[in-house]
């Protein structure tokens, strides 16, 4: 736990140094149009002439009090802007990770059991493709095929981008309850939009999950192979347990530990927002927000996003550690 705090302090220091000490902080508050005579006032207002340690302490103190700064590109406080986008990222990441785990773990197991046979080759090929495909390229190809070519051929086509169809939403307004549109449309019985929202999730969640799929399959396969060589598996088999029990009760649980680690980190990565996927699919999440913030030179927003991403990663690590203890009773904290 203490380590986590240190990590977070480290992150705030790095972002602060990069944007406020190494660069001219004044540049962050100026535009091409800012007049010369406004500059002394900007310096005074943001205390830019104070020594940087004082400015850093002020920054952290404000963070702790929930003041993460004001985003000029959003005309909103940073926390408000990020909170508005978190559900979209969360929804996309959840769907992506669910299908990745549902597909990745069984294929990894099959791959290990049918070692060096055709199913193994196929799943290894898929895994290799997954880890080596750039996500933006995959996203564009998916759009091209399932949106545009299907449209050209007169087939039902998936939407190219966005979270829902705006023209449809004008006629079937979605009431915001949780911010998760799949849930909100279901809760309000808005089935037209429920279908539409699901359709919009297909391509981005596939693109997003495809990378993690490869990693999870490969990890699952190799740890399964390793576990299957252990003495206790030989023992289990020799005492006449069925192969099913051996695999699913004895081997799988132990082989899951590395997979859980990787999956935990993958979830964390996805929750922090996937800048490329969200940009390609115009997904209104935190990743796209971060990309826009960089383009608009919005330092408070970039710093806030970095911190949130770090927070998510650190918490995911913590959860993974707790899961270890469940999977392997020998691990205690």
């Amino acid at each position: 736990m203490f380590l986590l705090v240190f990590v977070l302090i480290g992150v705030t220091m790095i972002t602060f140094f990069l944007s406020q000490v190494l660069l001219d902080p004044l540049a962050l508050y100026m535009t091409e149009r800012t007049r010369e005579d406004a500059i002394p006032a900007i310096i005074a207002y943001y205390h830019l002439n104070d020594p940087w340690p004082i400015r850093y302490v002020t920054y952290v103190w404000n963070l702790l009090q929930g003041d993460w700064g004001y985003s000029r590109s959003l005309s909103q406080p940073v926390l408000v802007g990020m909170a508005a986008r978190f559900p979209a990222t969360m929804e996309l990441a959840t769907i992506a990770i669910i299908w990745t785990l549902v597909a990745g773990i069984p294929f990894g197991i099959i791959s290990a059991l049918k070692n060096n046979k055709l199913p193994d080759h196929v799943s290894r090929l898929v895994a290799l493709t997954g880890v080596s495909t750039p996500v933006f390229w995959l996203g564009l190809i998916l759009q091209l095929v399932f949106f545009y070519y299907f449209y050209l051929l007169g087939l039902p086509h998936l939407p190219s981008s966005g979270r829902y169809d705006t023209t449809l939403e004008i006629k079937n307004p979605v009431q915001q309850i949780t911010g998760f549109m799949v849930l909100d449309t279901l809760l309000t019985g808005n089935l037209v939009m429920f279908q539409d929202v699901l359709a919009h999730l297909v391509l981005p969640s596939f693109a997003l999950g495809f990378i993690s799929l490869g990693v999870i399959m490969r990890i699952m396969r190799s740890s399964m192979l390793e576990v299957l060589r252990q003495d206790y598996i030989i023992l289990a088999r020799s005492k006449g347990l069925s192969e099913r029990v051996v695999i699913y009760r004895h081997a799988l649980k132990n082989a899951m530990i590395p997979t859980v680690t990787i999956a935990g980190l993958a979830v964390a990565g996805l929750l922090g927002g996937a800048p490329l996927t969200e940009t390609v699919f115009a997904w209104p999440g935190m990743g796209r927000l971060a990309v826009n913030a960089i383009g608009r030179n919005d330092a408070p927003l970039i710093m806030g996003f970095t911190l949130i991403a770090a927070l998510i990663l650190v918490s995911a690590n913590l959860i993974v550690d707790i899961l270890y203890a469940y999977l392997d009773p020998r691990i205690k904290y």
Binding site: Y148, T166, A282
Partner: peptide, 22 residues
Amino acid sequence: PNVIIKGIDDANTRILDFKAGA
């Protein structure tokens, strides 16, 4: 009657939508 203005950052995505008439 209605005008919708959407921000879509990726040029390729915009072009596909435009080509498909969306």
